[in-house]
Design a binder for these strands. Structure first.
Lengths: 215, 215
DNA sequence: GTCTATAGATGGATAGAC
DNA sequence: GTCTATCCATCTATAGAC
């Protein structure tokens, strides 16, 4: 097969990509421990040995998906935060900062996008991830630190401790956007809450969190 | 052995209780799928067959822990909501309603209490539970409905849909109080956030959520 | 009721043919 | 690189002795 610019031939790249996509999808829908290597290779239409050949192990595959998706998410958030900073002379207001935090995962979760699978995967990683993933989540907070710094600048009258706690509350709002929780809310509200209206939900979250931050 | 009032002898009750406690603890700390029946019986100091003899299966044991703890939590929340209702002529303000929702799981999470294990167990059940547990979580919302009704009464100017979404946001704040998330926040704030001050945290959560609700 | 031994099933990983 | 066959560890559940 012809070599691609990155040195892998197209066949290899296609197989690896198929495994990656199938694994992310199954992990996001069923949970990490409820998906076997056999499930993944079967869904991807490749042979059983592919996971170990291309990724080394099931856990390494999990970790690679985790690293790629969180990097993409953090990049988009950083981009929006930077843009907000540019638009407000380096001192964006609370709402603009929170929008940079909320919008990327929410917009990815739009019903028509494949990306919604990635969001569910990331949320699951927070509670079901391997030791290695949890280690990264707990210790690699440099990305969040930029948001905390921006919020401190935007709320000069609030103690730093308060800012951190409120940021924690905002993250909780995001992490609760799992399929099962939307379903529960749908039952509770007797259908009044429509998960599909992403921009409406973003506005609701921003209204709530902004008010909480300025309390 | 002498029979106890409930018809079980003391030895049986003690073994069953030891299994229950050990299982809850291990599940809460390591996650449901990362704990084997062998781990549980070993920790409890009983023989391997005890789980199946006393509970039927590993999943049934999980479910029994889940049912007992959620029932206790919901009972305490209902009690506080009822009390708030009595204190405000049947129409408690938002803050009192939210306190009935927040305080029970938070106070149980106090560092010195064994109950903090129960709270972590319940939070884990939301994302890692079995099909049966997820079914209960999604469909049995009668307890939450009472909170929604109280909030609707307390906020006559807000559309019902808005109330439900904001209740969803509040639940997200609670569910994010996992050990790993507290650790992450601790790293991010460089030690400024002290998880141990439960009453302080409760006040912070109420300040944030109340402001969000009245926005 | 308690315990040991084991059945029975499944999963991750790999050797070796092609 | 791909694939099949298989190894080996681990797990839940249970049979049967005491």
């Amino acid at each position: 097969m012809p070599a691609t610019p990155d040195g892998e031939d197209a066949g290899e790249a296609a197989t690896k990509a198929a495994v990656f996509t199938a694994a992310e999808r199954l992990f996001a829908l069923r949970g990490f421990q409820n998906v076997s290597v056999r499930d993944i290779t079967s869904e991807a239409g490749v042979n059983l040995a592919s996971v170990n050949y291309h990724f080394g192990s099931k856990d390494a595959l999990l970790f690679e998906i985790f690293r790629r998706r969180t990097a993409e998410l953090n990049r988009e958030r950083a981009r929006m935060l930077h843009e907000a900073s540019d638009n407000h002379q380096g001192k964006p207001p609370v709402r603009a900062i929170l929008e940079a935090l909320f919008a990327p995962p929410l917009r990815w979760a739009a019903p028509s996008l494949d990306r919604r699978i990635s969001v569910q995967f990331i949320i699951r990683a927070r509670s079901e991830g391997t030791e290695e993933m949890r280690d990264v989540l707990v210790k690699d907070v440099s990305h969040l630190a930029r948001f905390a710094d921006a919020l401190i600048l935007a709320c000069p009258d609030l103690p730093r401790e308060t800012i951190y706690w409120r940021l924690h509350f905002c993250l909780g709002m995001i992490h609760n956007n799992r399929f099962a929780e939307f379903d529960r809310l749908h039952v509770l509200s007797d259908g009044a809450t429509r998960e599909g209206d992403i921009e409406g939900l973003l506005k609701r979250m921003l209204d709530f969190a902004e008010a909480g931050f300025l309390a």
